[in-house]
Design a protein around this nucleic acid. Structure first.
Length: 738
RNA sequence: AGCGGGGUGGGGUAGCCAGGACAUCCCGUCGGGCUCAUAACCCGGAGACCGGUCGUUCAAAUCGACCCCCCGCUACCA
């Protein structure tokens, strides 16, 4: 019996967790821990909600509530979702607790005593009336560079100039409009640079780490570490435990990783053995596993180890089996089909084990994987139900019907050995892979055994034997039941419900966990009464796709007719133009068109604008949309709205454009091309496509939307008045629009 | 554009770090079998010149160079 520490990345408490969290960082440690417990090992598995930091205060301000309200709300939601998925923590706590504050304080003070923290002063705005330092986003003033009167503390949103302390003109506090004064404020910094060499040494010994994790860490270390500030001027967080620092808190990234330790201590207190945590942290033979997504790697392979080195006496991570991401391209479609991807509604529609199976079999262990409803449906129905579920059920129901109990075994040892060897082979493979945190392979070994079971059942043909030789039939069923038992035990880490279900149907009184991992090889007690079996898994039906689904992607774009009012050169970039465009309201757009147009050519032109693009700063100036242009080699032309179009007209193409903002990268995924209208109403974009458009298109070049790059159908652009957007006749068919 | 990861039969994947005999497995597909089982199960077939080009080697999916495409982060991408 050994002890194992399992640490799970702390979900941030400003939103509900989604399937990506589950597949990436929650399910893997649960499988691992269940496996370890089945082996009789003692597992301490901890995590909790990461509740501090600015995103939570911002959300709280928006809703007009305190940060606690937000942090607690999502803590509860997420805790429930995790429990619903049968993921069992020793403790799933949160960071806004007295215990956590104490542990963070201890870490802070110890690192400070050991000389790994130092103070550094910076100039920052201070409001004399509110009597506090103002975080950057709480200061407004006039930008000295572009004259924008609504510039914020650190940077002007219009021209993007970054301010040094005090550069902004007429700064005011956004709360009370008092002019703030500049004061020197101090912050603590973690001396990461001091650990660089030790970390490099430590990493080099990590043969068992995934190559991606190790390589990423190595590159980061070789690029050189920088000391990082670990305190901030705000009030939501862990207070800095020093006199005179009452208005500051510990930076969230510093406090959150300490959660592993504080949760372990909290767990120990709760179990009534306050020192029990040391068994997992101070005994060098105990391995600590940290499960997280790839975005979190440096915190667990560099920063947290550095903190632990600086603190002293505690174990560093043994393995960090970080996963990639589970993505959902079908997310939008899923909503239109009445399927939602959030966990509570998934749990309402599908069995927990079905979800766990799909997420495990599709786990992003080595590269991003994608959740699709179609794949979900086929994997559940054709693998989980058809292979494993069917084997359980055909064996249990046939035996129950004809014997009602575990039959007596009259067969030969050779016959028994054939089955036991298959079981042993699967056992060895599952052991080998789960110990290395290779979950997909482990699951595959289980499914292979289920397949062996089906083959075996077929080969011995109990349905024929029962008519000829009841005794012999009982013997082969006995061996099949033995396989069922082995599968039940082995699959427990992945599929705990059905596993225990099968275990009970075999008539066992004692719980599986008590019996433990090795028990699946033990002979079943002959004569043990079976329970009446019912199928452990059911097939699922995912609703049919909506016929318009192909064009839903177009709805994510909110296109409007605009008129360019003013154009200036971007003061700070070679290729960018800065323009004001009327799209019913006035927006500023930054476009990389300087090489193709002069400001005079553009002024006054009607254009097509993506109006719901998420604003972004380009070389400092905010761009609140984008002009659609077609390009082919050196030829770049703007799309042309029809004569009757007015600024603000919707280019809806008969769909319902979304009001939601679209990320630029998502916009880039859409396929927009130039095509030529054919006699028969089709459109040639280099190859011929059917066009989903109303009549009235002349023979001309037009922009079209394709549901996918390979689609054979497209949608032309037309306004709410029904007139078409066109494009320059010189463009070749298939030119791209962006 | 820079950095990292990836491109393997229709879809999804293993193998690649430690090159070598028929390129793995799942799904789908085609043909057959069975009828205990949730039209589930079992057997067999078809289907891949392992993104492209060039190189190293007796031998490359596996090593190297260059190029193309996808994904993530970063950026004077809008």
């Amino acid at each position: 019996m050994v002890k194992v520490l399992v640490c799970v990345a702390w979900p941030y408490a400003n939103a509900p967790i989604h399937l990506g969290h589950v597949a990436g960082s929650l399910l893997p440690p649960d499988i691992f821990s269940k496996y370890q417990r089945l082996h009789g090992n003692e597992v301490l598995m901890v995590s909790g909600s990461d509740q501090h930091g600015t995103p939570i205060t911002v959300k709280a301000e928006k809703e007009g509530v305190t940060p606690e309200v937000i942090a607690e709300r999502y803590h509860e939601i997420n805790k429930k979702a995790i429990e619903g998925l049968d993921i069992e923590f020793s403790l799933f706590t949160k960071t806004h607790t007295e215990n956590h504050f104490e542990v963070v304080t201890d870490m802070f003070m110890t690192l400070r005593d050991h000389g790994f923290l130092y103070k550094k002063g910076t100039l920052q705005y201070y409001c004399p009336k509110c009597e506090k330092f103002l975080p950057d986003r709480y200061v407004e003033g006039t930008c000295p560079s572009c004259g924008n009167e609504k510039a914020r503390g650190d940077q002007c949103e219009r021209c993007g100039k970054a301010f040094e302390g005090g550069e902004m003109v007429n700064a005011v506090c956004v709360h009370c409009s008092t002019a703030p004064e500049l004061r020197e404020t101090e912050h603590y910094f973690l001396k990461l640079t001091a650990f660089q060499d030790r970390l490099i040494d430590w990493i080099s010994g990590k043969e068992e780490w995934k190559s991606s994790v190790k390589l990423f860490t190595k590159n980061w270390l070789e690029a050189g570490l920088a000391d990082r500030p670990i305190t901030r001027d705000m009030s939501w967080g862990v207070p800095v435990p020093l006199p005179g620092w009452e208005d500051k808190v510990i930076y969230v990234w510093f406090d959150a990783v300490i959660g592993y330790l504080s949760a372990s201590k909290e767990w120990a207190k709760r179990t009534g053995r306050p020192d029990a945590w040391k068994e997992y942290w101070a005994d060098p033979s105990v391995k600590g596993y940290y499960f997280l997504g790839k975005d979190n790697i440096p915190f667990h392979t560099i920063i947290w180890p550095a903190m632990l080195m600086g603190y002293g006496g505690l174990n560093l991570p043994y393995d960090v089996p970080a996963n990639e991401f589970l993505t959902f391209k079908g997310d939008k479609l899923s909503k239109s089909r009445g399927n939602s991807i959030d966990i509570p509604s998934l749990l309402k529609s599908y069995q927990v084990d079905a979800l766990r199976y799909y997420l495990a079999v599709n786990m992003p262990e080595n590269k991003d994987s994608e959740f699709t409803w179609e794949d979900f449906e086929t994997k559940i129905n054709n693998e989980l139900v058809a292979t494993l579920g069917n084997f359980y059920h055909r064996v249990l129901s046939f035996t129950f019907k004809h014997f009602g109990e575990v039959p007596i075994y009259h067969g030969t040892e050779a016959q028994r050995r054939e089955v036991m060897e298959a079981i042993e082979k699967a056992r060895a493979e599952v052991d080998e892979n789960l110990q290395k945190c290779e979950f997909k392979r482990g699951l595959k070994a289980i499914m292979d055994l289920a397949q062996f079971g089906n083959r075996y059942f077929d080969s011995v043909g109990p349905w024929a034997l029962i008519k000829k030789d009841r005794e012999q039939c009982g013997s082969v069923l006995y061996l099949n039941l033995q396989l069922v038992q082995a599968l039940a035990v082995m699959s427990y880490p992945f599929l705990p419900r059905s596993s225990e279900g099968a275990w009970k149907l075999l008539g066992h009184q004692e719980g599986m966990l008590n019996k433990g991992w090795d028990n699946f090889a033990v002979p079943l007690p002959e004569g043990q009464k079976l329970l009446e079996p019912k199928p452990l898994f059911s097939k699922i039906v995912v609703e049919k796709e909506d016929p318009d689904a192909a064009f839903r992607g177009f709805e994510s774009l909110n296109l409007k007719v605009g008129r360019i009012i003013d154009v200036q050169n971007h003061p700070n970039a070679d290729s960018l133009l800065l323009m004001q465009v009327d799209i019913g309201r006035k927006v500023q757009i930054v476009a990389g068109l300087k090489a193709y147009f002069t400001p005079e050519e553009l002024k006054g032109r009607k254009v097509v604008v993506v109006s719901n693009l998420k604003p972004a700063k380009l070389r400092g100036y905010e761009s609140q949309g984008m002009l659609l242009a077609a390009e082919s080699g050196d030829l770049v032309t703007l799309l042309m709205p029809p004569a009757d179009a007015e600024p603000g007209d919707q280019v809806s193409s008969g769909m319902t454009p979304s009001e939601k903002q679209i990320e630029f990268k998502d916009f880039q995924k859409l396929t927009l091309k130039i095509g030529e209208v054919q006699e028969d109403g089709g459109i040639d974009v280099g190859r011929k496509l059917r066009c989903r458009c109303p009549p009235g298109l002349g023979r001309s070049k037009v922009p079209v939307f394709l549901p996918s790059p390979e689609a054979n159908e497209c949608l032309a652009f037309f306004t709410e008045k029904g007139s078409f957007i066109t494009a320059d006749e010189r463009l070749p068919n298939g030119a791209t629009v962006r």
